[in-house]
Amino acid sequence: MDILVCVKRVPDPAENEIEINKDGSDILREDVVYSVNEWDNYAVEEAIQLKDNHGGTVTVVTVGDEEDEEILRREMAMGADHGILISDESIEGSDGTGIARVLKSEVEKGSYDLVFCGAQSDTAAAQVGGLLAAMLDWPYASLVNEIQVSDEKTLKVGREIEGGNQEMNEISMPCVLSIQTGINEPRYVGIRGIRKVANVDIPVHGLSELAVDVDSVGYNGAKVKRLNYFVPEMGEGAEILEGSSEEVAEKLIELLKSKGGIK
């Protein structure tokens, strides 16, 4: 089974307070700690486990620039066999549809049975997997939290739906799945593992290598554009308790007692 996993390098939500720059054109990028998008990491782990149990290969691909190569190496250190960096200035400013067009072309260069995406990333749009599947005319399942291989052509997949319930589906391959966190326990990657793949060649594909119309991607090809970030006028929000930890705790206990919050 040959699997392509689409990954993205994002500001790590656990490590950063996101601030917006002066003109709202971007978030403040200085001092931002980056990591591989959490959902994508689960997707790579799932692909590696499928490879270990059923044979095949795992390829990780990202759309970005040379800085994004580090996450490809990280995922290769986990056990992915190949990495591909798609990079071209014309892709900058693409909407999800533009990114999916580029990925579609990359998928068609190979002969993959399965394509995984993380269920969502830093933009929380949760769309690239579904866009890609429809462009390829492959079946799709989102929010996948379980995969069983039925036979060479068929999978049983569980989708996480409301209320913690799971929706089981049968899906034919090739297909695209968007992977939900919690589907597995991604393995730890140490410095030594990353060193091992430090010199592995990672091909860079530009639009000239991919059959993509330049006008259909990038900012000008995008139907959905982010104009700028802004800081919303917030409501009053929470009353922030000030003081030492002890003082804050005491104030909070008084409040909680009046609300039935301490029995």
């Binding site: 999800g96 549809t97 999916a100 269920a119 949760a126 769309q127 690239v128 997997g129 579904g130 866009l131 599947a133 429809a134 462009m135 799709y140 399942a141 989102s142 929010l143 989708r159 968007s178």
Partner: peptide, 9 residues
């Protein structure tokens, strides 16, 4: 999330 992206395509 399952429906919308593919429908747009």
């Amino acid at each position: 999330m399952d429906l919308a992206p593919g429908l747009s395509v």
